[in-house]
Each structure stands twice: as C-alpha cells, then as structure tokens.
C-alpha cells in the first residue's frame, strides 16, 4: 500500500537520526527548561546550537551542491503559509516547551510531558492532512513565489551570502559570550512520576 524505501536508505536514516538525537540530548535542548530559557531570552544555548549548525551546514552543503553531489531541497516561498504557520508554531512552542525534534528527543530522555507532546504533534499533522482542501487556499492566499533563496533574491553569489552569514554569526557569538545573562538549570527537577 505504501512505498517502502530500500534497506540501505532505512539504515542511513536510522544512523542519521541516532546521531541527531544523541547531539540534541548532549546539547541539553531536549529539556523544557532550556527551551523556555531561550524563549525568555535568558539561556541562549538553543540559539548558539542553531546558528553554529546553520553556518557549518551551509558551507558543506553548498560545496556538495556545486559539485553535483547533492541537490537543494527547499520549500517554496509562500508568504501566507509562512505567516500563519509561524504564528501557530510560535504559540504552540511556547505552550509545549519542546520543538518537534527536541520533543522526540525529550521523549527519548524519558520526559512524560514530551511524550504527550509528540502525540499532540501527530494529531496536529493529522489536522493538516484532513483539512488540506480548506487550508490550501489560505496557505496560498499571498501566492507561491517558487523555490526562492536569499542569493537569488539579492542577486548575489551563494558564497558571498554564506561569508556574510558567517561574519554575522561570529559577531553574535562574541556578543553572547560577553553579555549572556547568568542562568542555571538547577530547577530542572519539577514533578516526576515515581
């Protein structure tokens, strides 16, 4: 009934996922306290991980794409979908305190509220599927601008943008190293099941 990919692809996905989950857990971002600490602009761990990953990733991925070893795989720019999606996403994230990937990692770490969150996530994805015919016109209300990238938008080379991004990220990390508020995860206990 459904296509099942080759055993090799399944194995590669599993290995990639295990490393991803391992890194998220070691990065302490599979915890409610860390995510809310970021949203309250106190604990910048999540932000540091993300911008470091973005810059590191972009160098290698653009290198692979230029050599024809991989292809860009991006979502088209759909302004209405982006606006509606970002508002719902932000609201849900603030309430749950785990994002979709770190929620799965939080469930792996054992957090019971993250497990409940994952069930909610599958339900939310189900709403999209079931209500797709109604939601699609809303998502496309401001058009579909195609698979737009920043270099194309600014009529600049990818490497110029990546270099500029690297510079901005370096400055942000230097500022954070100096001005990040003191924080602790000493309260990370909370109520647990016995």
């Amino acid at each position: 009934m459904f296509e099942i990919e080759s055993a090799g692809d399944l194995m590669l996905g599993l290995i990639t996922g295990i490393v991803f989950g391992f890194l998220l857990q070691k990065g302490q971002v599979a915890k409610y306290q860390t995510i809310l600490g970021q949203l309250l602009l106190k604990d910048w761990t999540t932000f540091k991980i993300m911008i470091t990953a973005i810059v590191t990733g972009s160098v290698g991925v653009y290198f692979l794409v230029e050599r024809g070893a991989a292809s860009l795989d991006i979502w088209p720019f759909q302004p209405a979908a982006m606006l509606i999606g970002a508002m719902l996403f932000g609201a849900g994230l603030a309430l749950l305190g785990y994002c979709p990937g770190t929620g799965m990692a939080g469930a792996g770490e054992g957090s019971r509220d993250a497990m409940v969150g994952v069930l909610g996530m599958i339900t939310g994805a189900g709403v999209l599927v079931v209500a797709y015919n109604i939601l699609e016109p809303l998502a496309l209300a401001l058009g579909d601008w195609g698979k737009l990238t920043v270099p194309v938008l600014l009529a600049s080379s990818s490497w110029t943008i990546i270099a500029a991004l690297g510079l901005v990220v370096a400055v942000m990390l230097a500022l954070l190293a100096r001005y990040e508020p003191r924080h602790s995860r000493a309260h990370a206990g909370g109520t647990s099941i016995s």
Partner: peptide
C-alpha cells in the same frame, strides 16, 4: 501545544529542524 505547533509547521512546510536548520543552511527565503 504540540498539535498547534505542528499544524503551523506543516502549513509553512517545516519546523525548527526542516526550516530552522536545514532550510536556513540552504539559504531558503521561506
């Protein structure tokens, strides 16, 4: 929260991973 968050992610086409890391590193405007 999980339901609202992922409904939003799927309307926009990605989450903290798909957009926040993978899409941004590909320099996608969305």
């Amino acid at each position: 929260g999980g339901a609202v968050m992922v409904l939003g992610a799927r309307i926009a086409g990605g989450c903290t991973s798909g957009h926040g890391i993978s899409g941004t590193l590909q320099l996608a405007v969305q």
